[in-house]
């Protein structure tokens, strides 16, 4: 084999680092949106590779729905502390009070929609001109056409018709007043790529990514983590199962999968075997309509 051979993970890593440095080079006030999930944890590792021994040229920003897994929150705080990087947390709860928003109630109540308001408020508060996110194009059909630099208007809205052509490795971050950009360094990674990278880099994850026993509410054939935040219909059953999470979002709309995968190798084996995609397995809110994701993107959600 040629000595100058770059493995696919190295190629993906090199591309992601390049994108992060373009963000740092082209924007005045970037931020990295950190959710505590594996994709944003991967972004943080990539930022270390891009900017060490310097500091990150952006803070980590978390929009907290108040319904997060405590394990993810603890992980977030420890990570920021260990890296010595700045962490900004803004709460959906506060936006609800301030803007007098009403929360959805009932079975499909989730704060995902409201998260958008808090995100836009936070962007305005700090004047962020670019937010780095961990979205990937393999997650969902509407994302397959997303740009790596995605321009949003001042309402955070995404207009598929206004997207700029993106050529070679040249990213156009020029924006007008009021506009901002979402940048997606791991656009070209799949769920499996992320896990393989986590394995290679030996990255510790919140333990809810691995198997554990948990009380779950059975809803539409899915297992939802049972907590105070979740509404329960009287006929909905609560069971105890060995589960893990494939994504770690808001507890009210992130489902668990039954699993005995206790470490990264076991998870990788499971994903290779699995026949249900990550979003399908875990996001109740995407089920609501076939174009749910696209509608949310247009509304300013990631």
């Amino acid at each position: 084999m040629d000595k100058r051979y770059l493995d696919y993970l190295d190629q993906l890593e090199a591309e992601a680092i390049h994108i992060m440095r373009e963000v740092a080079g082209q924007f005045q006030k970037p931020a990295l949106l950190f959710s505590g999930g594996k994709d944003s944890i991967t972004l943080v590792r990539l930022a270390e590779k891009a900017f060490r021994p310097g500091k990150f040229p952006f803070p980590l920003v978390h929009i907290d729905t108040g319904h997060n897994f405590p394990e993810a929150i603890q992980y977030r705080d420890e990570l920021a502390e260990r890296l010595g990087e700045k962490l900004i947390v803004r709460h959906v709860e506060d936006t609800i009070k301030k803007q007098n928003l009403s929360e959805a109630k009932g079975r499909y109540a989730s704060r995902n929609g409201l998260q958008t308001y808090t995100l836009l408020e936070t962007i305005e508060e700090f004047g962020f001109d670019c937010c780095i996110g961990g979205a990937r194009r393999d997650e969902e059909k509407a994302r397959a056409k997303e740009r790596i630099f995605s321009v949003r208007d001042e309402f955070g809205q995404w207009d598929p018709k206004r997207q700029r052509p993106e050529l070679w490795n040249t990213y156009n971050g020029r924006i007008a007043m009021g506009e901002n950009v979402r940048a997606f360094p791991i656009s070209n990674w799949t769920e499996l790529d992320v896990w393989n990278y986590i394995k290679r880099e030996n990255i510790a994850l919140p333990n809810i990514y691995y198997t554990h026993e948990r009380e779950c509410l059975v809803r539409d054939g899915k297992l939802m983590a049972w907590s105070d935040f979740i509404y329960r219909d009287p006929e909905e059953e609560i069971v105890t199962r060995k589960v893990r999470f494939r994504t770690v979002g808001d507890m009210t709309c992130t489902a668990a999968v039954e699993s005995v995968a206790y470490d990264v190798d076991a998870v990788i084996a499971e994903i290779i075997e699995s026949k249900i995609s990550e979003r399908g397995a875990t996001r109740i809110d995407d089920k609501l309509s076939e174009t749910a994701m696209e509608d949310r993107k247009k509304g300013g959600y990631f």
């Binding site: 194009r137 393999d138 059909k141 509407a142 397959a144 056409k145 598929p160 018709k161 997207q163 656009s187 070209n188 799949t190 499996l192 174009t291 696209e294 509608d295």
Partner: peptide, 21 residues
């Protein structure tokens, strides 16, 4: 096929990225 508008028009109007290995 990607976005709703395109689905309605029945043609693909933009570059979509797909992955397999």
């Amino acid at each position: 096929d990607g976005l709703k508008a395109e689905r309605e028009q029945g043609i693909t109007i933009d570059v979509a990225y797909k992955y397999f290995s």
